[in-house]
Design a protein around this nucleic acid. Sequence first.
DNA 1: CATGAATGAGCCTTCATTCAT
DNA 2: AATGAATGAAGGCTCATTCAT
Lengths: 228, 228, 228, 228
Amino acid sequence: MTRNIILRDHVRAGILDVAATVLAERGTSVSMTDIAQAAGVARATLYRYFPNRDALLYALYEAALSDLTRRLNDARLDSVPIEEAVARMTRATIAATGRYRALGLFEKAPREARRMERQLAAPLRAVFERGAASGAFRRDMPVHTLAELYFSLLEGVVSRVIRHRLSVEEASAYATTLFLSGALAAPPAPPPTATSTATSAGSTTASSTAVPGAVPGAVPSAGSPSSG
Amino acid sequence: MTRNIILRDHVRAGILDVAATVLAERGTSVSMTDIAQAAGVARATLYRYFPNRDALLYALYEAALSDLTRRLNDARLDSVPIEEAVARMTRATIAATGRYRALGLFEKAPREARRMERQLAAPLRAVFERGAASGAFRRDMPVHTLAELYFSLLEGVVSRVIRHRLSVEEASAYATTLFLSGALAAPPAPPPTATSTATSAGSTTASSTAVPGAVPGAVPSAGSPSSG
Amino acid sequence: MTRNIILRDHVRAGILDVAATVLAERGTSVSMTDIAQAAGVARATLYRYFPNRDALLYALYEAALSDLTRRLNDARLDSVPIEEAVARMTRATIAATGRYRALGLFEKAPREARRMERQLAAPLRAVFERGAASGAFRRDMPVHTLAELYFSLLEGVVSRVIRHRLSVEEASAYATTLFLSGALAAPPAPPPTATSTATSAGSTTASSTAVPGAVPGAVPSAGSPSSG
Amino acid sequence: MTRNIILRDHVRAGILDVAATVLAERGTSVSMTDIAQAAGVARATLYRYFPNRDALLYALYEAALSDLTRRLNDARLDSVPIEEAVARMTRATIAATGRYRALGLFEKAPREARRMERQLAAPLRAVFERGAASGAFRRDMPVHTLAELYFSLLEGVVSRVIRHRLSVEEASAYATTLFLSGALAAPPAPPPTATSTATSAGSTTASSTAVPGAVPGAVPSAGSPSSG
DNA sequence: CATGAATGAGCCTTCATTCAT
DNA sequence: AATGAATGAAGGCTCATTCAT
């Protein structure tokens, strides 16, 4: 009796696995026929496990989220320095979402899943909050925006992982590095002047001035002393 | 005579405009019916202007690319410092591609458009080459990868512009700033004082080695004693 | 005033002419667009002359029938021997229907045209009646059937004329010859037996016996003496 | 398992049967909707059996051709006298093509079917060759033309069979008789008695010259004193 | 009057889904 | 429980027809 249930769960997981792969490879346009065929079952059988297409997608969503949740829990983000936390969560996210990207994770989740996602996003947001609070992050842009930029970067990188333009390893490392440190080479030797340590926004020396139009007009407090 | 042609072109442009919006908002899955409806014309009329769906998508491509080309030409990227060049090309790209993102610009363009796109990408790549050659860009990752990361960031940001989570201005400024300067606050020259190891890790100066688990070489969580 | 009407009629005739050609060449599936294009006018103009597709087809039908009627009248079928009459009506029909064959003349005429057609068929039927009455035609099959066979042959031949497999001349001559004389070479020298002149059915000597299964079983009075 | 396949084949054959009827009756313009409706299945079901319209038509071709091939083989055309051979092949062709006439057999077959058709036409042509070689056929027209006339006659007759104007039996018998013997009553050897010029003109014996305006050479109304 | 533009209806095809075995 | 078969709905496209210039 229980055996069957167990077996059934395994089959279900298998189908889900195949579906994730197919979807990631060929996009959201794959049909139920495609998925069933890839999974080696009849279409009708597929419908036994997932009453309809949305259910399948939703299940994939759940799988992706639980996968990510597990990885993030394992990462113990709050027990390590902010840089390490970012590195870990980047890796975890890329690894977990790579297979599910067709779902548009972080992007166009089904209405019902929004709640789960927000709940899941918590640990990620926490890292940002901590980074902001600890002064580790620049203060010339709202932490919320910083997070958005981070997710933006992740999405793009994930899509490149899927298209085999980057490996998970590369993608994780590069994305972390870019996000944390920035692209501009640091100035050779900054004159040991003021205690600008706190308002590190303009850090890369010429940055706040050398990057004209980057934070144009009234963009939030670029390196202003009021932040702190 | 000419009037009609002009009018026709305007109508065509109008339809294209609507199509871009609808596609950007609802994804590539929108049907010709949807587009025609959104444009307020009958489906058959839509087909008068674009003989088939692909023709419509291709026209959108052309529009996006020519728009972007014009903006990049206007930007005179090679006549300004690298930072300004990045700022300008970021703004230009976001402004131009925002409406066409559903097409997956830089991603899955139709065969024929690939050529145009590559040709168009030239000025962008040129900026990266210049940045690398002039030593303005960090040297711990290949310029090619840097470009990929930049495009990744852009894509994500563009999608947020479309979903009205960011304005074009904000998106441009923030993306530029993040890409150029980085997210971590980095003191100009951290006096070898305190246990700043944790926070100052991502110092842009020695970034390539200071960011744990980030740099290509010794990729996963390197240098972080807490990882384990 | 009248000028215009005259001109209009000419244009109309021209269109009809082109339409006939196009229809004959490419079949009934040609669109109004095709016809308008071939005629060098706009589709809307075509509709000025013929309110709808059926009207055009019907007009073509009328043209074909009146053409045929004229030719048959000119042929004075009842003033010449039966053989000559057949020859003439064959030629007239092939010449007249060649251009209109797509209409399925004698085959799938529009309901309303049936009447006209039947009226037109009169002179043709008359020839058969005369041939039967005069004893010129074989008596082992009903004259009605003979007529059907004749029309069958004509249809096929006409289709070949249209496809340029036969010229009008060839087609007329061959069809007439075959229909009148038959395909089997006549026996060298028939024993000068009886006065079988009247019941000429078995004419080609061995025909009624040599053509086994041709008029099989109870097929109408094959050379039987009861016919007369 | 096998049951299903068998059943499926039967259903397929049934659909094909219905399709043949509908096509024969209403012409090639019938839509898939029409066919599905006539067959009593949903359009989508129709597509289960035939992936597209062309596939259906092609299947009909195959059916018609294989049917005809079988019949012709059974007829053993080369083992019987020419007259019997013609009688058999006429019957076989009419019986086999009657249901498929809308396909325009011998007329506008799809490219791939041309080959099959030509291969199939071989036995028919062989009969004509034999007839010509043996001197059984008249010599005043090329055997190729004779064949064309024969097919012309067949086509027309077949169309009448479809429209229920003739039964297969009647059509076969009459067509054979007409083709073989001719329509004109021809006295075995007209004693040079009376003014039989008019009636006996088409005498099969000297037919080639006797039929006015019929024979290729001196085509139009030749030898008829009344023509002018 | 001639014409370009607009449109409703219909066709071919595919897909997600249900049903009976 | 698994599956082949059946189907309604929708998508892309064309065509005959109407309208306003």
